[in-house]
Design a protein around this nucleic acid. Structure first.
Length: 346
DNA sequence: AAATCGTGGTA
DNA sequence: TTACCAAGATT
């Protein structure tokens, strides 16, 4: 039997029951695909359910404030996905008369939708036979066909896309794409793949040549830069200073305390003593927060200052004055969320 | 083409 | 502990 038939039969019997399956609303398919970019199903499912509950239609999402969407996205990471999700909802709602684009090429024009997501939506929601090439598919194809190309090179994706176009099931393209991904996620895993229970183990080239553990080949590893950030929890009575991140940097459009960033670990506290003439800042917490490409060394410092100084610091940091009661309304990156949960519980 | 953009689970 | 990487997109 063909790869095609075997994997679809396996999928029909073994597919997981997930909340975005067995319905074909392109809005919900899109929403699920954006949430699942670079994100495990276990982590994304709760977010998907909350988004569907809060924004059941594209129109409702389009009419929401970006800040509300970022708040609901808080903790999921890669926040450009949330910003683009909102932008595209607005675009479809106002420029495309609320009608979701229904083919691969039109979908790809939308902000936040690239090759993979356009193919996933086109195949699942509109039955178009275009292959969705994600990390799972790279791994399954590389092993099954013994492909030794470097998957970190962009042109390799074109090779896999063309291969996928040739073998994708013409009658059930959406199920085919999902079947390959499901196989990669549950059987053909990066380490310790369960080849014994693989539906295509009779014809897998890597298995026959005992090369499963060597494939796929991925060359580049990214380098991590260190940053030293000092978060200043400055309060006056029940008021606190927070600042929206508007620079081209991580966590764009999220909020945090006023920050002093220093070039090294050592050169630290003397720097900001000058900001405070009444009381010293107390060190509340130190932690290392890992991003995919940065290692953030974060310190939280707290000071309760008088009114005059509060205003001065508010201007100094170009920050906003808010009351502690409303502090949890704003979207925050993970380190801020954790700090606020412990110091300002609600 | 290579860098940038989060967070959490796993070995 | 470090390294990898997960239903990737953008610049």
């Amino acid at each position: 039997m063909s790869f095609n038939s075997l994997i679809l039969i396996w999928f029909d019997k073994n597919k997981r029951n997930l909340p975005w399956r067995d319905q074909f609303d392109p809005y919900k398919i899109w929403l699920s695909e954006i949430i699942l970019q670079q994100t495990r199903i276990a982590q994304g499912t709760g977010y998907y359910n909350r988004f569907v509950e809060n924004y059941p239609t594209l129109k409702s999402l389009a009419e929401a404030d970006e800040q509300m969407i970022l708040k609901l996205w808080q903790g999921l990471g890669y926040y450009s996905r949330a910003r683009n999700l909102h932008f595209t909802a607005n675009y479809i709602n106002s420029e495309l008369n609320g009608e979701f684009p229904s083919n691969f090429l039109e979908l790809k024009k939308l902000k936040g939708i690239g090759d993979y997501t356009a193919a996933a939506i086109a195949s699942i929601a509109f039955n178009e036979p275009v292959p969705a090439i994600d990390g799972n598919v790279f791994r399954v194809f590389a092993r099954y066909f013994n492909i030794e190309l470097d998957i970190s090179q962009p042109k390799t994706k074109t090779y896999f896309f063309n291969l996928g176009k040739e073998i994708i099931d013409q009658k059930r393209p959406g199920d085919f794409n999902q079947a390959v991904m499901e196989l990669g996620a549950t059987i053909c895993t990066p380490t310790n793949p369960d080849c014994m229970n693989c539906p295509v183990n009779q014809s897998c080239e890597a298995l026959a040549k005992k090369k499963v553990s060597e494939l796929p080949i991925k060359s580049k590893k990214l380098k991590v830069t260190h940053r030293f950030l000092h978060f200043l929890d400055i309060s006056n009575g029940d008021q606190v200073l927070i600042k929206k991140r508007t620079e081209k940097d991580v966590w764009l459009n999220l909020y945090n305390f006023p920050i002093i960033e220093l070039p090294t670990e050592e050169s630290f506290p003397s720097k900001f003593q000058e900001f405070n003439t009444t009381k010293p800042f107390r060190l509340m917490k130190e932690e290392v927060h890992l991003l995919s490409h940065q290692k953030l060394h974060i310190s939280f410092w707290k000071a309760n200052v008088d009114q005059e100084e509060f205003i001065r610091l508010q201007k100094e940091f170009n920050s906003e004055i808010i009351s502690i009661e409303e502090i949890h309304q704003y979207p925050y990156p993970k380190p801020m969320e954790k700090y606020l949960d412990s110091e300002y519980p609600n």
